[in-house]
Amino acid sequence: MPELLNRSVEQDSSDRSRPARSRTFGSQWEMTLTVTERCLGPVRDIARAHLRCWGMAQAEGVVLLGITELLANVLRHAAVKEARLLVQATVDGVCVTVADFDPRLPTVRVPDPFAETGRGLPLLQALAEGFGVAPSPSGKVVWFRAGCAGEGTGPPAAGSVAELGSGSAVRLAVSPGGSR
């Protein structure tokens, strides 16, 4: 499993964007990538390896669903497909942040029962212990928090500052069931 922690994500050969970059600092993992359909599986594999390494396997289902949903939304809706994924293990759970360069904020709506899409964010909001969206100087940040009752590692604690690139930062001040 350690080899997965440092694994890179292949970008499509037709993609002329920058290659994916990934870094791990203790209980924090970040990846900057151009989102494609092919990258979603490898990103989940790498996230799963980090969660297990940190002793956060209990949060795996919600975290992997949330990462997939937020990156798929970048793929479907953002004008620029580059995103930064940040996953942080805290004392009582996992905080996940996806930042992209599209300033349009997503809205969580009651899905049409006959529609084939539109259920991801409401499902994530229902499963996560916290969920929120905020504009950023370069686009937007969407975050969620998944709990790990009885599991966990120490740092970084909720409220720590995570750099999101280009000098911008977000303070992960989350509360159960709410947004910031």
Rank of each mutant, 00 (worst) to 15 (best):
A134I: 09
A49G: 08
G150N: 09
P111W: 00
L105N: 06
T153F: 00
L65Y: 11
S166R: 15
A158G: 03
V96I: 13
V35Q: 04
Q125M: 13
G150S: 10
S166D: 13
G154Y: 05
R109F: 03
R104T: 09
A128N: 05
N6Q: 08
V80Q: 05
T24M: 06
P122F: 02
R52C: 10
M56T: 08
A134L: 13
P156S: 02
R104K: 10
T32V: 11
A79L: 12
E69Y: 07
L40S: 12
P176I: 01
E163H: 13
R21T: 14
A20T: 05
A173V: 14
V161I: 14
L51F: 03
L71K: 06
G154K: 07
R145S: 08
V87G: 04
A115E: 05
S179Y: 08
W29A: 05
A57Q: 10
R18Q: 14
N6W: 00
S27P: 06
P135L: 09
M56F: 05
E116A: 12
A146G: 07
Q11E: 11
V80H: 05
G41T: 10
R180A: 13
G120M: 12
V110E: 07
E116L: 15
G120S: 03
E60Q: 14
M1L: 03
V91M: 11
G55V: 14
Q88S: 15
M1I: 03
L123C: 10
